[in-house]
Amino acid sequence: MTVTTSVDEGAAGELLVILRHGPHSGIALKEGLDAALVAAAFGRRVSLLFMGSGVAALMPGQGKGPLDQKGTLPTLDMLEMYDIDRCYADSASLEALDMSADALVIDVTAVDSGGVAQLMACHSLVMTF
């Protein structure tokens, strides 16, 4: 897994949406993704940062939740259609769940804490869910 310390700020979006909740524990991840999709539909350049439990959204092989939750995997599949292709994951959060950035459901750039700070600094608008 390659971890990036320095983010290409020129390629950054206008809005950074930070997702910190897992896919089946509640609706927070879905509502955060919805905000990102609406922003993209309104023509804003959106970046996503998965942190904490939020990186679990990137785990391959997810089904629906056992309690009938729809899950978020179908939404992640749609990101490309919305031109959301700047996706990042906090490397420490991935490691904590024994996940590798090389085997996830979408392409993400793994960033360390310096990269996370830089992402927050180089986006004019940050929304945390």
């Binding site: 905000a35 609406v38 922003a39 309104f42 804003r44 608008l125 929304m127």
Partner: peptide
Amino acid sequence: LGQLIDLGV
């Protein structure tokens, strides 16, 4: 939700 995005911008 579009209103939220507009507010942010």
